[in-house]
Design a binder for these strands. Structure first.
Length: 1048
RNA sequence: GCGCGGUUAGCUCAGUGGUAGAGCACUACAUUGACACUGUAGGGGUCACAGGUUCGAACCCUGUAUCGCGCACCA
């Protein structure tokens, strides 16, 4: 026993047990084992990027999943936690391309060509992929690694293609030339969800354009044309006065009779792409110009007739904004595109895919980057006198989520998906507030052992407020742009007939005709397009679509494509994994991918499995640093979880993270939390160490913690103990020998189990850790273990002797030597009972240390092979103590109250010590005047807890002058100070306390004096107040008496 | 603009109408035999603000301020 290390050393146990679990196939799910009595429980991991590394976000997310999985195993379920990784199209391709560029191997991926480049990506994946999987193992993740999946596995890829083809055949997938979010850095289209709006400080430029045919039609204002043009501009931006009056005026002709319109824009570089100027037809300032034309100032070198663009009327124009005149650039703005559609405007694309201007932008913009071009355009306008003003302006600009550059709205031909099963998917999620825990849900728990199951046939979000966000998005979804101009990903299973490509069958008219859902049949006559999982039988005549699918178009199939789904109903209905484990129970993910992933998985689940993919969705918070900033590489505020594990242990990291991650809140990460986790593990370790040091009793000889060897091969002693299931109840505990402390801790354990069940049912993992922390540290260690030393630590003779000291007291009962020996054994039995339950309660949170202790303490050896005998992983989850148990052991609320009052007495007594400036290690004499009869053990415990030399029982004690005293429910405690204390300081303290007591008394008295209160309040509240008043009054009396005694 | 969430001790947060709580941090004491990765005791809060409902409000209602997030956007 002396070999047990004083501190827990996680490094020496974690790998050992992880390997042990792997060797025993503890994580492997077997659908054949699923029965009515052993229900299935499944989770699919949100697949991390295959080339990613573990972040604190992953730690949070996967620890929760591991907790759920381990808890479910202890509940006796057949558990599948299915792991895997995602190919992460853009991210991975970018990383590899950058690396190849950096090594000087290529300048562009075209240098390698598609096939060679993809080979390199696969190589990269083989080399760097899977790092995160190894890291998850360090964390203790109990995934079924035999079923690890990758979104580009051949079977998985086939699912993706199958789904594409099926949706295409249903007419839900179509191709069309539309305005998409284009990323000029990644050179691909993006979905709306991949665009992040960011506030940008820029400028709003006001420039004027001449109304071309103004002179021809004359102008009534011509004679009064002395007013400088400057005053005509932007009538609504100048002042608040006479706003409506100004509106009726509109532009005033200049000295030469020309009319100018002023336009406000943030993007002057797109002027060459303008094909109209729009005003609101209801705007009295401008309506009269509709149908006329203006001269577009850029490109400046164009002849006049090419500069003429129409003035159109469109309701979209807000006449409160800017000048009320809008330039319309259908090829470079989503809203303008729609205006263009309505008015049959031409589209002039003036930009290259990479965001540089093309020749249509004219000189000198041609070839410039779009932001450089903006500056130059402003210079040009200034040069020609067209720029009227520039004012600072803040607006929102869409950024590419991955590349973090402003996206460019761009016309391009893409594949789109009309979301399938959207109505079912929208309806299936329980909306906030419409359902809670069904009454009796926890009772069900006791009967079935299935904690946390939701009864509603609807899907539950946790926290449920996300349901509203989901519903809102589902109610407004736009078709999903699923094609990406990348190489890394699932290639679109569409082929075009080669000879048709030349004859224009695929050419898309740029006429501004609306392109609808049926356009595919228009654009691609059936003979010219082939869509199928298998390539066409005559590949030489066909050319495959070069694009790949959005990564999310593969991950939305994750819950079933990972389980062997093929889309062939007769096959799938015979796939055991799918049949047993779909739908899954819980999904744990971040709210940032609620649209990207969660919503789409729900739709796919209904569409392809005709069932929701999961019953519960737990949304974690976002991990931030202490200052509340998001974790980011550039800030360097993101600690490496592996470093933390090396420093503190995986259990510490898990516990610290869980403890600081309340449901629905962002988490401010602080390494101190991990430190706290480590301290907690150490406390657990030492509590078990204490148990070992005081000897064996109720269980077979412990193996010794710290050196817990991995047990011999499983199955060797399968039937050794038939009756072990009843160990918990019978054990070696003798009800007649239980002390009040024993009963108290058993009740506290019961309470902790109940709280854990509630916490699990409500997905409140931080509550669960708080319960564990409080129960184990504050209740078990601080009180119970300390009190138990009254029995355990003293030698039996010593105990016998000291218990004889206060023999004069008739209140005391006495014990024989044998009694005390039995008592000792009984206390150890209680400790074993509590510890063996506690370890199980801890296991989902602290898998490693609990396994080490479970084995090392010998608790494993006391359980049936498949119920904890082999590993704590399969030990049954503790149940609350039932009524039979409680009555058998005589556990009542009275014992609980007694010990709580005793603890209060102890605290007060310690406070007296402190008041008297008695050093913590100095033993002093207390005198106790009990209100009721006290057992010998209780006196002994009191003595120990007060670190007293003795506690004398004085039924009729009359305190001498200068004696400190405190009155509690259980009696008066005296500490003779013999002049050791500062009388004045003590008087001051008591006076202050008296004031506090008086304040409390008057508060309660006031309430009780109010007839409204006494008449309306429920009886129990009234009684409570009266009792409280009596208590305070009693204390007041006592403090007054003590003060008087001090005065002498 | 619309919606959601937050505002409680120095910090991070619990607290669904009846005596304001925890952990950390802080102060003091103690190296006593499980643990200094420890123990004991202590100090510390007008529950953002203003109204309202109620016998009684941190809690329910209305409004305001402020921080954060999401959605939609006016060029």
């Amino acid at each position: 026993m002396s070999e047990i290390s004083k501190a827990y050393e996680p490094q020496s146990v974690e790998d050992k047990w992880y390997q042990f679990w792997l060797d025993r196939k503890c994580f492997v799910a077997d659908p054949a084992r699923v029965t009515a009595k052993r229900p299935a429980y499944s989770i699919v991991i949100p697949p991390p990027n295959v080339t990613g590394v573990l972040t604190l976000g992953h730690v949070l997310n996967n620890t929760i999943q591991d907790i759920l999985a381990r808890k479910a195993r202890m509940d006796g379920k057949e558990v599948l936690w299915l792991p895997g990784t995602d190919h992460a199209g853009i991210a991975t391709q970018t990383v590899v391309e950058k690396a190849l560029k950096k090594s000087g191997e290529i300048r562009h991926r075209d240098d390698l060509g598609r096939e060679k480049f993809l080979e390199r990506v696969w190589q990269w994946k083989e080399k760097h992929g899977g790092i995160i999987i190894q890291q998850l193992k360090k964390l203790g993740a109990s995934c079924d690694w035999t079923r690890e999946r990758f979104t580009m596995d051949p079977e998985y890829s086939r699912c993706v293609q199958k789904v594409f083809v099926e949706l295409y055949k249903k007419g839900l997938i179509y191709r069309g030339k539309r305005m998409v979010n284009w990323c000029p850095a990644s050179l691909t289209a993006l979905s709306d969800e991949e665009v992040i709006m960011k506030e940008q400080k820029g400028s709003l430029y006001y420039f004027k354009v001449e109304v071309a045919d103004s002179r021809a039609h004359g102008s009534s204002g011509r004679e009064s044309a002395q007013t400088p043009a400057v005053e005509n501009q932007s009538p609504l931006t100048s002042a608040a006065t006479g706003e409506t009056e100004k509106r009726t005026f509109g532009p005033i002709p200049d000295a030469e009779g020309r009319i100018w319109l002023t336009i406000a824009t943030t993007r002057p570089e797109t002027i060459p792409g303008d094909t109209a100027v729009a005003v609101n037809p209801k705007d009295p300032r401008y309506a009269k110009y509709i149908g006329k034309h203006v001269l577009r100032p850029l490109p400046a070198e164009f002849p006049r007739e090419q500069k003429l663009i129409p003035i159109i009327g469109d309701e979209h124009v807000d006449f409160e904004f800017g000048t009320g005149v809008l330039k319309v650039t259908p090829a470079h703005d989503k809203a303008d595109f729609e205006i263009g559609q309505r008015h049959n405007l031409p589209q002039i694309d003036i930009m290259q895919p990479d965001g540089h201007m093309n020749p249509l932008a004219g000189e000198p913009l041609n070839g410039l980057d779009r932001f450089k071009a903006r500056k130059v355009a402003v210079e040009l306008l200034t040069g020609m006198g067209a720029l009227e003003k520039e004012e600072p302006y803040t607006n929102n600009v869409g950024f590419s989520e991955r590349a973090d550059v402003p996206i460019e709205p761009r016309l391009s031909e893409q594949w789109f998906l009309k979301y399938p099963s959207a109505e079912k998917a929208r309806a299936c999620v329980e909306q906030a507030g419409s359902a809670g825990l069904r009454p009796g849900a926890l009772e069900d728990t006791e009967e079935t052992g299935r904690v946390g199951d939701r009864r509603s046939d609807k899907m539950q979000f946790h926290p449920d407020r996300w349901a509203k966000v989901y519903d809102h998005w589902m109610g407004n979804i736009q078709d999903w742009c699923i094609s990406r101009q990348l190489w890394w990903g699932h290639r679109i299973p569409v082929w075009y007939r080669k000879n048709k490509r030349e004859d224009g069958g695929l050419k898309i008219e740029n006429s501004g005709q609306s392109v609808g859902a049926n356009s595919s049949s228009v654009l691609h006559p059936p003979s010219s397009i082939y869509v199928g999982v298998e390539p066409p039988s005559d590949p030489e005549n066909w050319e495959q679509d070069p694009d790949v699918l959005d990564t999310w178009f593969s991950s939305w199939l994750w819950p079933f494509a990972t389980m062997g789904w093929t889309g062939d109903k007769s096959h799938d209905s015979n796939t055991p994994t799918l049949q047993a484990f779909y739908p899954t129970a819980d999904l744990v993910t971040g709210p940032d991918i609620i649209f990207f992933w969660v919503a789409r998985m729900i739709m796919a689940g209904y569409e392809f499995m005709n069932e929701m993919p999961f019953k519960n969705v737990y949304f974690t918070g976002i991990i931030r640093d202490k200052q509340g900033r998001k974790m980011s590489k550039s800030l360097g505020n993101s600690p490496d979880p592996l470093d933390l594990i090396a420093k503190y242990g995986a259990d510490a990291l898990r516990f610290g993270t869980m403890r600081s991650a309340p449901l629905g809140q962002d988490i401010l990460f602080d390494e101190q939390n991990v430190e706290l986790g480590r301290n907690f593990c150490n406390k657990l370790w030492n509590a078990c160490r204490f148990r070992q040091m005081v000897g064996s009793a109720a269980v077979p000889a412990p193996h010794g913690i710290g050196s817990a060897a991995v047990p011999a091969a499983p199955g060797s002693e399968e039937s050794r103990r038939g009756a072990c299931a009843t160990f918990e109840i019978q054990g070696e505990i003798d009800p007649t020998l239980l002390t009040a402390d024993d009963k108290w801790i058993l009740l506290k354990l019961d309470q902790a189990i109940l709280e854990m069940d509630v916490a699990f049912a409500e997905y409140k993992f931080s509550d669960a850790t708080a319960t564990l922390y409080r129960f184990f540290w504050s209740e078990y260690c601080d009180w119970y273990v300390e009190a138990s030393k009254a029995v355990l630590v003293k030698s039996v003779t010593e105990l016998n002797e000291s218990s004889a000291t206060p023999r004069e007291a008739t209140h005391l009962t006495n014990h024989s030597f044998d009694d005390l020996t039995n008592q000792r054994a009984n206390t150890l039995a209680v400790i074993d009972f509590v510890l063996s339950h506690t370890l199980r309660l801890f296991h989902p949170f602290l898998p490693f240390i609990t396994e080490e202790l479970w084995q090392g303490m010998g608790y494993a050896a006391d359980m049936p092979e498949n119920q904890g005998g082999q590993t704590i992983m399969t030990a049954p989850w503790p149940r609350p103590l039932d009524d039979d148990f409680k009555s058998h052991y005589g556990l009542t609320g009275d014992d609980e109250k007694h010990i709580e009052a005793r603890n209060e007495l102890v605290s007060q007594g310690r406070n007296l010590r402190r008041t008297a400036n008695i050093a913590a290690n100095k033993k002093v004499k207390f005198i106790f005047k009990p209100a009721r009869k006290w057992a010998a053990h209780d006196v002994e415990a009191l003595k120990l807890l007060l670190n007293a030399e003795s506690v004398e029982i004085g039924a009729h004690h009359q305190p001498a002058k200068g004696t400190l005293a405190v009155r509690t429910e259980l009696g008066d405690l005296f500490l003779p100070t013999e002049g050791l204390i500062d009388l004045e300081a003590e008087k001051a303290r008591l006076t202050k306390e008296l004031q506090k007591i008086e304040a409390e008394i008057s508060k309660v008295e006031q309430k009780l004096a109010n007839p409204n209160f006494t008449q309306k309040v429920p009886a129990h509240v009234l009684a409570e107040h009266k009792q409280r008043l009596a208590e305070w009054q009693g204390k007041r009396e006592h403090v007054k008496a003590t003060l008087a005694a001090l005065q002498g």
